[in-house]
Design a protein around this nucleic acid. Sequence first.
DNA 1: TAATCTTTGTACCATATGGTACATTGGGAG
DNA 2: CTCCCAATGTACCATATGGTACAAAGATTA
Lengths: 185, 185
Amino acid sequence: MAPENSRDRREELVERCLAAFVQAGTLDLSLDTLAKAARSSKRMLVHYFGSREALEESAISVLEGRLRARFRAGAFPRGISAETAIRTLWDQVTQPASRGLLLLSMDLTRRGWSGSERGRRFFEEQQRLWSEMLREFLPDAGSVETFLQLFQGAALVYLATGDRERGRRTLDRFSGEMLRHEPNK
Amino acid sequence: MAPENSRDRREELVERCLAAFVQAGTLDLSLDTLAKAARSSKRMLVHYFGSREALEESAISVLEGRLRARFRAGAFPRGISAETAIRTLWDQVTQPASRGLLLLSMDLTRRGWSGSERGRRFFEEQQRLWSEMLREFLPDAGSVETFLQLFQGAALVYLATGDRERGRRTLDRFSGEMLRHEPNK
DNA sequence: TAATCTTTGTACCATATGGTACATTGGGAG
DNA sequence: CTCCCAATGTACCATATGGTACAAAGATTA
């Protein structure tokens, strides 16, 4: 069913653009490329969003909403062990189908450290999200902090090499450490 | 002393361009910007290197040479503890003066995961370098692998937030774990 | 129906970019 | 001195990019 009013059309366009960004693994698509991928035209993108910047902002907001839903606190069943949660996270994030999403997140993070305030905000929100989600699986704030950094390093290695195993090994090792110090509960 | 022959001039130019890349924290500088930073002209850059791509290749090679010298196996005195070595590495890498170098390395790594074969090669060489350097401080290959990923995640967080402390904390924690399992030697 | 508002295409523009053509200079070799 | 080749500047070109002008075609409303 085709969208009826202008707001619906805008929303449909932003969905399609986000899909294109995810597929490309970056926000760095020209308006023409983007429009083609979204089955629209540069003319219409500018018409509905006013500028490329505004379009990007809309797409990022939608992306953040999705990630919030997917990685919110309580996204995993309460009962499962830290090992299971960690393993599941890694398997999800490094699924081939998720690669675009991971690349796009990394692209935003990179924009953050290259000076983009929006990129920095995105990064900080993801950190917060994951921290809250992990708090119920890991024993203390320090282990959450370590996990986050280890996971990000693992993700970076995965992106650069395509090898899921390196990260899986180190995360398993991390889980093992958890166990050794917190063998119960 | 001014360079005399054509090869010297080329080398001087590549040094200056590398310095510009480091200062910018990325290879993504236009030839004009680059030329200005190198006190030369686009015309001359093309004259000496033939193309932007060749220029980048030269600069990357020089960069790799420097990193090889700085992070080679044996770069640290044999006797020092893993804690000291790790702490020193972190302090060096996150020194404000090193920020451009870190950014540039990350930029190359990103190019690697965005499809650049050269970027991938750069990344793998750095991994190899650091592995060899760390082998004499860490007890086994697994801990080296974990350390590398943790360090890279820490560096990413440092770049995105500017906060050196987060990484310092998790690396100290990692050192502590080492100690707990390998209290002697 | 007439008037108005939204949507859309086509052609265009200004700017940036990597790179080239051409002419000029300047120093060393014969 | 003259010839030649490297070095260099200026102007230029083709392409890509974000964005705009203008006009036409629907759709909506008075």
